[in-house]
Computed example of a mutant assay.
Amino acid sequence: MTATPRPERAAAPGKVNLFFAAGPPRPDGYHDVASLYCAVSTGETVTAAPTRGAGTSVGVAAVPGSLVAQQIDRGTFTLDAVPTDGSNLAVRAAEAVLARFPRLSGGLHLQIEKAVPVAGGMGGGSADAAAALLAVNRLAARVSGEPALDDDALLQLAAGLGADVPFALTGGAAVGTGTGAHLRPVPVGAPLHLVLVAAEAGLSTPAVYAELDRLRTHEDVPPPRLPAGLEEALRTGQAAELAPLLANDLQAAALSLAPQLAPVLAAGAAAGVLASFVSGSGPTVAHLVAEAAAAEDLADVLRGQGAPALAVRAP
């Protein structure tokens, strides 16, 4: 890039899996899944700016009041844990876009504003990648004078980056099948109110899947599918009807690797929430409550007990 135009900024949401079923391991090591993704009202923001150097550099900051900021305040997390080299999914996303604009030259700086816990089962890295795709696409198109990549092209790049990146790009609520990247949007009748509780340390998604396979070694695992009534309960916006249908095949594996999650789940039951579950591969726990005020009250109580907690809406 020879010019130094204004930066471009884009955001992408974190997510919870309201339902997650995983089939047996496939020959390629992946698992077919049936997942109900739901975006939440906390997410990642990426600002893309051209530089006079070469390559892509990364800066990271925590969003004040976010789960990440709370983890830092409690000394259970440091931003040094976020990679700033080519292993960062946002860097890979940026470079995938730049490859479509070969006439550009110069470097790029990505400033990531983190709100979603790292390795927390909420798709934070995927949200970074999705936001980078959007921001770098706008910047590259403006600087080069070429047309920006369309939605289909961005979704194709997203699918090549990871199973959760396409959903982070589209947001809302969607059923994910295959490895999770085949998405079918679903309607939501009314916002859901959740309290998210971050853990002291993250969990590796591959490790959780490996533990799931170990726990199910002698089981006949059926093909994954959504339970009857799940989408209808979401469409009508009846949280009380949705609650008993929420489930996560990865939860037992997450609890096996991080047994300290059990009292976090139990705290939800003690508070009378509609449902408590581990999001994705964990270790973030989500409590479903009936109203926004109840979510704020529960988050205040949990923070008072020393837990990083945040009330959010979904989607």
Rank of each mutant, 00 (worst) to 15 (best):
G280S: 14
S276Q: 05
V273P: 01
T284D: 09
A267N: 10
S276F: 04
G280Y: 13
S281P: 10
F277R: 06
A295N: 10
A270S: 12
G268D: 06
A269K: 13
F277S: 09
L288G: 01
S281M: 09
A293F: 03
L274V: 07
V278K: 01
E291Y: 13
S279P: 05
V278G: 01
G280W: 14
A271W: 04
A293L: 08
V273F: 08
S281Q: 09
H287P: 02
V285D: 02
A271V: 09
A290V: 02
S281H: 08
P283V: 08
A292L: 12
V285T: 01
G272E: 06
A295L: 05
A295Y: 08
A267E: 11
G280V: 12
V289F: 03
A269I: 00
A267T: 07
A286H: 06
A267Y: 02
V278D: 00
V289E: 02
G282Q: 09
F277Q: 06
A269E: 13
A290Q: 10
A271H: 09
A295P: 03
A269H: 15
L274I: 01
V285M: 06
V278C: 07
A270Q: 15
A292V: 00
A270R: 15
A293I: 05
A286C: 14
G280Q: 15
A267V: 08
V289R: 01
A271F: 09
G272L: 11
V285A: 00
S281V: 10
A295I: 01
A290M: 05
L274Y: 06
E291P: 06
A292S: 13
A269C: 04
G268E: 12
A270K: 12
F277W: 11
V278E: 04
E291F: 10
A286G: 10
F277P: 05
H287Q: 07
V289S: 02
G282N: 08
A295E: 10
P283N: 03
V285N: 00
H287E: 10
A271Q: 11
A286N: 11
P283I: 07
V289T: 14
A267G: 14
F277Y: 02
V278F: 00
A295S: 09
A293P: 01
A286L: 05
G272C: 12
G268C: 10
E296S: 11
V278M: 04
A286M: 15
A290D: 15
A270Y: 13
A295F: 06
V278W: 01
S281K: 12
S279Q: 06
A290K: 01
S279E: 05
A290R: 14
H287W: 08
H287Y: 10
E296H: 14
L274S: 03
V289C: 09
G282H: 11
A294M: 04
A293N: 14
A270G: 14
A271Y: 09
P283W: 04
L274R: 01
G282F: 07
A270E: 15
H287C: 03
S281G: 15
V273R: 07
F277M: 11
S279I: 11
S276N: 04
P283T: 10
S276C: 07
A293H: 05
A290P: 00
S276K: 00
L288P: 00
S281Y: 11
G268T: 02
L274W: 06
A269D: 15
G268S: 07
A290W: 12
A275Y: 03
S276L: 03
A295R: 05
E291T: 15
S276E: 12
A270V: 05
A271T: 07
V285F: 05
A271D: 09
V273A: 03
H287D: 07
